[in-house]
């Protein structure tokens, strides 16, 4: 790829402005992981099924493994590294810890970010609504039960 084809993009990641030059085909996941050293988003299925690479773009969950970094220009991107308020964990993080809503943790950053977008849209979802919204995030360890309990608990904490 010659230098001529590089694109300049500006966007905000976890509240901080980022200006960088990218190749047009660069994926958002690779930009975050390799250039910005944000390793929380994980690569797994590579085809927008598993949700391990989920990040929020202007608050909406996207699979960063199939999302061009260029498409993120001018947006506000949140990764798992940007969710805590300094030392203070986000209520979803607290709820996942207290309810054992994770095991190996590989799906967890994507799972928590997807859950955040759900609770932002629908602060008190029913179990059926959680299952429906979260079906794009796979977990192979937990059997999902304790993730459902974590999200329900987080919803209560966020109301609290």
């Amino acid at each position: 790829m010659s230098e001529d084809h590089r694109l300049q993009i500006s966007f905000v990641v976890n509240g901080r402005p980022v200006d960088t030059e990218i190749e047009p085909h660069l994926l958002l996941l690779d930009l975050l992981r390799d250039k910005l050293a944000l390793k929380g988003a994980k690569r797994s299925c590579d085809m927008q099924v598993c949700g391990a690479c989920t990040v929020l773009v202007d608050g909406n969950p996207v699979s960063s493994c199939t999302y061009l970094a260029f498409e993120a220009r001018g947006t506000d991107v949140t990764t798992i590294e940007g969710l805590a308020d300094g030392e203070k964990l986000h209520p979803l993080m607290e709820a996942f810890i207290d309810n054992a809503g994770l095991q190996c943790g590989f799906c967890t950053p994507g799972m928590i970010l997807a859950a955040k977008s759900l609770l932002d849209l629908n602060p008190r979802p029913s179990v059926e609504e959680v299952k429906e919204y979260m079906r794009g995030n796979l977990c192979r360890c937990t059997g999902y039960k304790k993730i459902l309990e974590s999200i329900e608990d987080a919803a209560q904490r966020m109301q609290g």
Partner: peptide, 21 residues
């Protein structure tokens, strides 16, 4: 007792390192 697992903080914050990281 269902104590807090020490690995959980690493994992919910995205700080926990896997080989690929």
């Amino acid at each position: 007792t269902s104590t807090r697992r020490p690995d959980y903080l690493d994992k919910v914050t995205g700080k926990g390192a896997y080989v690929g990281d």
